[in-house]
Design a binder for these strands. Structure first.
Lengths: 251, 251
DNA sequence: ATTACATTGCGTCATAATAACACAGTTAAT
DNA sequence: ATTAACTGTGTTATTATGACGCAATGTAAT
């Protein structure tokens, strides 16, 4: 709940919210940043409202920045959710009481909300989960162990992941999810984790290098069991170019 | 302007609209259904507002149905547009006067609007453009000859077409754009028109038949110059199946 | 009727992309 | 020294794609 919105709801776009599915990658797990609601045993996606004088994309960037401290991140709008009854039971007395929202102001929150979904890919190690208040819990949670979420947030999360899986074929990823220097097995694990399936190591290498966005470094990973794998980095210029023009042409 | 909204704006989601990019195909042209605004020399996408008791998808179906008389059509949400100033100059005195909107009610229309974009593919011959009032003009216009549009509708239209081109690689199309029986050159022209590029006739046949959604009929097109081409129809079951599962797997 | 022409139907061939797999090199643990 | 687990660099078979060739069919011109 952003500061000041209760008293100044007239400065926000009515009935419209932003919800962000923030993906990170760690320990070969695809993580999602979730917030524990302080008033019940459910979790939620980090979200926010849209100030009247802010573009929706800017509002999404604000949510992401507030929650992770990160800027200049890959952030993409993927869908808008607007079932009539998606939030009709949400701002009930329990929640209003928790936030100490006066009955009159509560009407604003109880109105029907349509929410715009964005998903982000961020570097797990650089993104520090940031609480809005002391009673809140915000955590990286393995996407396979997502607890019960409020509203239709599970549906939003699932759609984000489905979109990401499709867009994996249309654009390169990894730049915001891996450290600057990374190994081929790490990159492959990222793909495998997102897609939830095994890929052939040798075919993966060929396909990913053919895209032409990787620079093979003259350096090997140190302190590692078994044979030390080579390190790679992204060629930022080519990466951006491919991001813009897309991968698969198809027809 | 839907009937009754001026007096009953409190029954609609504030600051939220739907805009539909309705594509049809005729004379080897990709057509878009556009509405001439009665108050100035610009055109607009068919759009509408979201009743409080309607899902956004339903509201989009309503817009499409009201404008084309068609139901059960391919309709897809592709993006939401929410720049702050996208409509700040739109509901000016000229427009308010035209619609005879009282100053007080006019505030509702002048507020900041976020719009959800849907695109539809419909059978040009079955979709009959339907006016809302006698002063309105609604027409199929070649997408290459789109006149000046109001607001950011050009941007919305462009994005719809870009999305359609991408989704062409992910799903089959044609079911809603061609008559029940059609020839291979007709189907190819559809693809060429959407993509705005020539495809090789023989390679197209191979690729499209390999998808397994076509039934080759024991019938040739009649009354046609040159050699009569064979007729095909879609195998609806397989078509739906491919629509659901997608075409290109990629990774 | 004959011929020219545009278009269709059904091929081929070379190349590129993909899937499946073989084998040797490196390192840590035993 | 041997083994297990992994990396690096291949090969081969299959499939998909891009670029064409050519005969068959029907219209239109002569």
């Amino acid at each position: 709940m952003p500061k000041g919105i209760i008293e100044n709801s007239e400065n926000y776009q009515p009935g419209l919210s932003i919800d962000c599915v923030i993906f990170g990658f760690h320990d070969n797990q695809l993580k999602v940043l979730l917030i524990k609601t302080p008033y019940e045993e459910k979790w939620s996606l980090p979200g926010g409202f849209v100030p009247l004088e802010q573009d929706i994309d800017t509002a999404a960037i604000t949510v992401l920045n507030d929650r992770t401290g990160m800027e200049g991140i890959f952030l993409r709008q993927f869908s808008t959710f607007g079932r009539v009854k998606r939030n009709d039971k949400h701002f009930n007395d329990l929640v209003l009481e928790y936030y100490k929202i006066p009955k009159e102001a509560g009407k604003w929150f109880a109105q029907r909300f349509v929410t715009i979904g964005y998903y982000a890919l961020v570097d797990f190690l650089k993104a520090i989960p940031h609480k809005e208040n002391s009673k809140e819990k915000i955590e990286w949670i393995d996407h396979k162990e997502v607890p019960e979420l409020i509203l239709d947030h599970k549906e939003i999360l699932d759609k984000a992941l489905a979109t990401l899986r499709i867009e994996l074929n249309l654009m390169p990823i990894g730049y915001n999810l891996l450290p600057e220097k990374f190994t081929m097995p790490e990159l492959q694990k990222l793909y495998e984790t997102i897609l939830d399936k095994k890929l052939d190591r040798r075919n993966f290498l060929r396909k990913i290098t053919n895209i032409g966005i990787l620079t093979k470094l003259d350096e090997k990973k140190s302190n590692v069991a078994h044979k030390a794998p080579n390190l790679y980095s992204f060629d930022k210029d080519r990466y951006e170019e491919v991001l813009k023009n897309g991968l698969n042409q198809g027809w």
